[in-house]
Write a protein that binds this DNA or RNA. Structure first.
Lengths: 125, 125
DNA sequence: ATTCGCGGCGTACACTTGTCATTGAAGGAG
DNA sequence: CTCCTTCAATGACAAGTGTACGCCGCGAAT
């Protein structure tokens, strides 16, 4: 089993942005971060470097710019991260987390419909 | 707004155990931890001490044993923690997290029914 | 009394994380 | 050519985190 170190909170966000961009240099990632969480350019650079040393992304030098590319799929990272959260905060039960989400964060009708859909598929199996 | 420092992953689990016990000394918390995550007694003691200094629990000396008691409700901690996760890993959208949970972690029929129930209440409003 | 076992309390210590400052090369503006 | 902007590459550093160890005192067992 390939044991990768886990990602810190800040690194998770950088990873997410990189997934959404596909591939990108430091500047692009920096600019794509949500306003309320602006970091210094070099901070983002450090995160990306660490992401690489932890094995989550790869990079190549393109001209004078280093381009980073995700190496591990979102799915995988999300699975690991969520599993750990559920483990620690909900004793391994995912239902309470879902209930929390439903109660705490309002969903649009469309979203509710979508969830119903998914539930149907689940029980169909 | 009372700004409390956030809890680390390990501290979250200790907090969860303490909520489930209501009040407890170090030994009780230590013994209530899941097998796969046993820590040294004094490690648990340290976590509890830190939880207290971060303002999440209070304690009193009862005889020669220090009893810890949660000060912040699970609800609150869960809200903050989940919100941060959703923010960083899902750009603030909770639906993708729900979808992930549904796809990745199988639910029993009873649980599915319970969720349907909740969805109904949501859309009723 | 002496010795155990348990818990409290203080302290430690390496590793991780968040956050930059610096230094230096490379290209474009003038 | 010279200056300015833009990155890359490093180095740094304080705070946070995981994980104890050691000494001390108390009450129970010998």
């Amino acid at each position: 089993m390939t044991e990768r170190p886990t990602l810190s909170r800040a690194e998770l966000e950088i990873a997410r942005v990189l997934w959404s961009l596909g591939e990108a240099g430091v500047r692009a990632v920096h600019d794509a971060l949500p306003d309320r969480r602006q970091h210094d350019f070099t901070t983002v650079q450090t995160y990306l470097r660490r992401l690489e040393s932890k094995g989550y992304v790869s990079s190549r030098l393109e001209g004078r710019v280093r381009i980073y590319k995700p190496k591990i799929k979102p799915r995988t990272v999300i699975r690991d991260t969520v599993e750990e959260l559920v483990d620690r905060l909900f004793a391994g039960e995912s239902l309470p987390l879902m209930k929390h989400l439903l109660e705490e964060r309002p969903l649009s009708d469309a979203e509710i419909a979508e969830l119903r859909q998914l539930l149907d598929e689940q029980s169909a199996k």
